[in-house]
Amino acid sequence: MLRIKELVKRYGNDKAVLKNLNLEVPGESVVSIIGASGAGKSTLLRCINRLVEPSSGSIELNGTELTSLEGKALRLARRRIGMVFQGFNLIDRLTVMENVQSGRLGYLPAWRAMTRKYPQEDIDRAFHLMERVGIAHYANKRADELSGGERQRVGVVRALMQEPEILLADEPTASLDPKTSKQIMELLRALASELHLPVLINIHNVNEAKEYTQRIVGMRFGRIIFDGEPVDLNNDAMDEIYAGVPAEERGGAESSTHLREVAAK
């Protein structure tokens, strides 16, 4: 259970990017967060694993308050939170196996990390997960030799190696072509239910959000202005979330003339 209360994030003295945001993600749900660029989706995810420091408010993961953690306690908390990035953020020059094993770096003594002496149990788990997503035959390839879809699979496996209690995905498909993008979304949905893992996905493509997730959260200007099932996301809700954004940028949102009119305003 992830519980966010009154979360505020302000960069310097500028206007707040997140304004008293409240969100609860119970159990094993897959939640997608939609909203225009600059709505604060990415900042919200990064506040959870503290790649971004929240200004105030509370974030609680299964009973642990995350916002006040420092040093070792923060590292221990981060191991429990997996993250998948838009740009994959793999270590390009290392092999796929080293990238996958880097998901265990929060658990591994430094000398083992340095000498690449990974525990047999981790190697077994890595091959199991890589087999599951179809990249096991690439174990000894360098990460930058893989295609976009394959690299994102490595990214997903790296996050799963952490045995996380929640998975954060920051625009995981935005750098991928439509077909690969669907495969990755399908994979995330399947893994979430197999591993009973709650997943929070920032996404631009509203159609994919509707198709692959059970709950959609719409953000605008640092606030949550929609929270419901895909069927509830009607044109009015879409207008509210994306007002002022050209229809082409809504990533497959219904491009009715009505929406175009709103967009033109």
Partner: peptide, 27 residues
């Protein structure tokens, strides 16, 4: 910096982050 963020996000300490996210890039 994305690679550094990735290693930080899995809970890697400073030394290990340098080892995995920085050294391969500057090698």
């Amino acid at each position: 910096w994305g690679q550094v963020e990735a290693i930080k996000s899995v809970g890697g300490g400073t030394f290990v982050t340098m080892l995995y996210a920085v050294i391969p890039q500057i090698m």
